[in-house]
């Protein structure tokens, strides 16, 4: 029996990890005019996406198959795909069309659905949210469009014919079996993202980014402006530990929060 028929027989997963480029989470953000000015801000992969990559690589190590990192973005976003490649994903893909501009969640998820289908994936990992909007809509929204199961805010996973995830629920942490195909959104949890080694970085340099495109419906949600949050009025500062009792009194009498 050759390897291909063996692979078909035991149904190895075809895994896609969604990655997004965002501003460095340690960066200061400033607004120029009515838009955030990111011209001098370092861009990086959204931190939760590295947990998604780690989980995807562990899934492949347990069950075989392939891992493809997919981003939606203009050419300037390819560095995060190279970073994903250096961590160990097999393929890197960027979907884009110059007509897209800012996609709302409906348009973005439509593009992702089409891309995932043409990649033939049955398992998608992504960060629980991207560190720019923090919305967290993509995982569950994409799952619904594909008719797949999903789990969000996942902090651990075990792999067999399905994926058993750990996720926080009202009363604690639940172990939940998620049948494939599925979209799994990852939080920072049990898995520490692996560091790229020299060999990985060398391979990433040479790796080709595969390009694809899709059809995006018109956006019905349009960004009209960005603004800085209102500055807080200066508070009261006290010296020395004994002032703590005064602060407790103020919390009761002035702030009314106790």
């Amino acid at each position: 029996m050759n390897l291909i028929s063996l692979a078909l027989m035991i149904e190895m997963p075809t895994i896609v990890v969604l990655v997004k480029q965002v501003p460095d989470t340690n960066a200061k953000i400033a607004v120029q005019g009515d838009r955030v000015d990111l011209s001098s801000v370092k861009m990086e992969m959204s931190p939760y996406d590295s947990f998604a990559i780690e989980t995807a690589l562990r899934h492949k190590e347990a069950a075989g198959g392939t891992v493809t990192a997919l981003t939606i973005g203009a050419a300037g976003t390819e560095k995060i795909l190279k970073d994903a490649k250096a961590m160990g994903v097999d393929n890197i893909v960027r979907a884009w069309d110059d007509s897209w501009g800012e996609l709302d969640s409906n348009a973005l998820q439509s593009v992702l659905k089409e891309s995932i289908e043409s990649l033939g994936a049955d398992t998608v990992y992504c960060g629980k949210s991207a560190a720019d909007t923090g919305a967290g809509s993509t995982g569950p929204g994409l799952a619904e469009r594909l008719g797949w199961s999903n789990a969000s805010n996942v902090i651990g996973a075990e792999f067999s014919t399905d994926v058993t995830v750990s996720m926080p629920v009202e009363s604690g942490v639940a172990k939940i079996s998620v049948p494939l195909p599925a979209v799994i959104s990852c939080d920072k949890g049990d898995f520490k993202p692996r560091k790229a080694n020299v060999k990985g970085i060398m391979m990433a340099k040479k790796a080709q980014v595969e390009l694809m495109t899709a059809t995006a419906p018109a956006s019905s949600v349009v960004v009209s402006n960005h603004s800085m949050p209102a500055a807080k009025p200066a508070g009261k500062t006290f010296e020395g530990g004994s002032s703590a009792s005064q602060v407790v009194q103020l919390l009761r009498d002035e702030a009314n929060v106790l």
Binding site: A131, G134, S227, M228
Partner: peptide, 17 residues
């Protein structure tokens, strides 16, 4: 309006439909 970048800035969107 929603906070973006975990509250470092705000984003206002207009919704049609």
């Amino acid at each position: 309006t929603s906070p973006i970048y975990s509250g470092k800035a705000n984003q206002t969107v207009s919704v049609s439909g």
